[in-house]
Design a protein around this nucleic acid. Sequence first.
DNA 1: GCATAACATCATCAATTGACGACAAAGGTA
DNA 2: TACCTTTGTCGTCAATTGATGATGTTATGC
Lengths: 233, 233
Amino acid sequence: MKAKSDKLREAGRVNATSRQGSNADKGGRLPHAERKAHILETATEFFAENGLTGQTRRLADECGISQRLLYRFFPTKEDLLAEVYRQEILGVFKAVWFADLQDRSKPVEQRLTQFYNDYLRTTLTRKWLRLFLYASLSEATMAPDYIASIVTQLLDVIMREVAHEQGVELPDDRAAIHEMAWTLHGSVSHYAIRRHLYQASNILPEDRVVAMQVRMFLSGFSPMISEYTDYLS
Amino acid sequence: MKAKSDKLREAGRVNATSRQGSNADKGGRLPHAERKAHILETATEFFAENGLTGQTRRLADECGISQRLLYRFFPTKEDLLAEVYRQEILGVFKAVWFADLQDRSKPVEQRLTQFYNDYLRTTLTRKWLRLFLYASLSEATMAPDYIASIVTQLLDVIMREVAHEQGVELPDDRAAIHEMAWTLHGSVSHYAIRRHLYQASNILPEDRVVAMQVRMFLSGFSPMISEYTDYLS
DNA sequence: GCATAACATCATCAATTGACGACAAAGGTA
DNA sequence: TACCTTTGTCGTCAATTGATGATGTTATGC
């Protein structure tokens, strides 16, 4: 196109100003690492909205580059998807959560509300949830075991801490312990799904919902354990 | 290409012979209504597994018919998808649930466990969940308002019945009431998602999980209401 | 039998889509 | 300036995909 080639030529003549200008909208020439990072960032948003079947041409449009250029950074679309998943899905879990959840100088109700407020804000975002669901629905096994492992460890810690503060003894069945913790964890997760997927309106603010759910979990904790152990006898 | 046209011709012959051979696999000639029902049934399974972007040719293969025949029953793929959604997603809610949930001759714990056991078995199946999630993720607005309306009414009934049995007064805020009921409803729903989507292993049987979750909800009901009303003062 | 309508397939089109070779432009270096 | 590496685009291929006209095939009424 004439307009585009004119713009490029002009950019070559006026060095400093045009470079800064094109850097802002990623329209100009970029070093390898920077361009790749920009593609990954855009691709995350793109696939989260359009699904993993979104087309490379439209992604290239969103990036403001030609479709061919995508293949200079990623050999195939599959590789791009794998990289997005690795960075944006697996890379958001914080190690500090484990430490904070086990800080017994604070009441467990405070620890849980703080954790789940942070979890909702940083992990259960629209972008993360939609990508995760698209990946889970597709047969492509994008290593969900890693996430399962992390969440399982979180559930273990939560149950141990609550049981300790309430002086309740946990059953031996580890699957049962996890299922009890899922009562709270799943409730929070489903709230996020509702909010970001079903476009539900008229929803209370996050911190209010978390406070209610944590309170209910702690109040029902001992009776829930009883329901399980009573059944066995 | 020669190879391709040969393959197609051979496939046609094989189809013809096998059709005449067995009528049990819907391979033969069928009246309009029967064929349409069979297509819808197969399409539900097909799109639930492969997503709404699944191709009409593969669906036709699953049906054991030619791709062209699909368009004798549905003008476009969109129409087929809409019909699947209408019949398999919207058509599974039972009116009897409302009556049973309000039958005060039985304790509310029994009513809730019975309802959610039935809900899990008949509605939150793998097929239903995957289709519903695919539809929710796609921008295609497949009338989620209808489902939202039904679920909202369910939540209203549940909260009213529990509050009545426990002698607790509900707050005025309808959004808050719904959010409290979602604590249980979302927890059960997320259990189904885990089971059918994440292929989670080592999960307790459904009735045990429902019993635990209902028990916890009832035990934490009053403290949850307090958490809400206390905050307002 | 035979006509007719319904059932079903074949062959194909036009648009889409992942992928890639050829080529141009920009920036650094001697 | 001449040269080379890196960045970027154009044009295109082969396979896929939704859709449709032309054609074959079977049941049913007369």
